[in-house]
Nucleic acid binder design. Structure first.
Lengths: 207, 207
DNA sequence: CGGCGCTTGTGAATGATTTCACAAACTAAC
DNA sequence: GTTAGTTTGTGAAATCATTCACAAGCGCCG
């Protein structure tokens, strides 16, 4: 498969949400123009995005909501369950553990870890916070696929090294630190302060 | 000013962090190559990014850490204080209110709002959660610049309409909903489930 | 003060992504 | 069955972003 741009994957994810809205409304077909206006893009963009993976539409009619949903889920790897471990049970870790948005798309939180004795033993939405010393063993025994990093920035890189050594190939980082992972590991970062700074730039540039 | 790509602004933000690290270490100059290796890019990229805003370096030597920090802060609009209001005091809103990463870059949380009586009156890191009915008045009296949206997805778009009507020009949305804002308003979204789905795609594509 | 070594700043080249534009294919209506 | 009206799928064109490559500038050393 040719390399697919991240922007394309991001839009596919969005399209999937619109498709689910449409399904909830009982609609059976959707056109590229509909998807485009919901997502703030153009119909050509939608068709080009989909064309990387095949032809799923019917000319003159549009796309079958259910068939396209299924196909996008397959493409994004959402047909299977992903087992997720959260490291760091502070404010952000706790918020992530209790975030409803994950579960319903097949991301299952199988463990939450911290080094702080005060937090260990607490229950976060049904999952008990465990001692981080147990992390290495649990990564394997719990068959974790993905690790969410919600520890202080200085602890983030050592943690990446540790979990990738244990075989983890997907990491989503919430610590405001630039991290590096070995080849073969996908590491993404969500940096809230950075987003706010980009917003600041936009506001400052307007004024 | 010519239009600057978001990717450039994002990198400038990152450079600023590295510059602050360098300053903490007492180093006075930094080269584009140093900035590049810290940020996982190339020295040409760094120089090109900076060149959009002028020439700040010294050939043969590099950039003055303090001068470049100052200049990037100016560019990003971080020299001034931004007054931020958080709407939604659930898990994510509370985590945002207590996030240390915001304050130290000039983002000041001046209010947190919710509709739930059980949450109103609670203190989050020194800020009392107020009734969302007071939001419209407070947006003006508190001189808010930016609103962070941490409400359920279905409440997000009405909230955008409401705060932009009250004169807010910058919105950072954490609800998993695609939002639209009128021209002149900058709206950015951080969507954690979407990030996980992009990660899922990367993992699924490898297998 | 002259030459060496290093690093910037920037046009030009390349590469990536988006938009355009239109033939082909289908539905629906009569 | 024919026609009118849609909408897809996709090469080609245009735009946008990154990388290359090198002249020019500066510090440092002798």
């Amino acid at each position: 498969m040719k390399h697919i741009a991240e922007s394309t994957v991001r839009r596919l994810s969005l399209y999937l949400r619109f498709l689910e809205d449409y399904r909830r409304q009982g609609l059976e077909t959707i056109s590229s123009g509909d998807l485009a206006s919901l997502g703030g893009t153009t119909s050509a963009q939608v068709r080009k995005d989909l064309s990387f993976f095949g032809s799923f539409g019917t000319r003159g009619l549009g796309y079958s909501v259910s068939a396209l949903s299924k196909r996008i889920r397959e493409i994004l790897g959402l047909e299977r369950e992903w087992r997720v471990i959260i490291v760091g049970a502070g404010k952000i870790g706790a918020a992530l553990a209790q975030y409803e948005g994950f579960g319903y798309r097949g991301f299952k939180i199988v463990g939450v870890y911290d080094v702080d004795q005060a937090r260990i033993g607490q229950s976060l939405d049904g999952v008990i916070v465990k001692d981080q010393q147990e992390l290495d063993g649990d990564l394997k025994s719990l068959k974790a696929d993905i690790v969410l990093i919600a520890v202080p920035p200085e602890a983030a890189q050592p943690l990446v090294d540790r979990v990738t050594k244990a075989g983890i190939r997907g990491v989503l980082n919430f610590a405001p630190a630039p991290l590096h992972a070995p080849a073969g590991v996908t590491l993404r970062s969500v940096d809230m302060a950075l987003e706010l700074e980009i917003l600041s730039y936009a506001l400052a540039a307007k004024a």
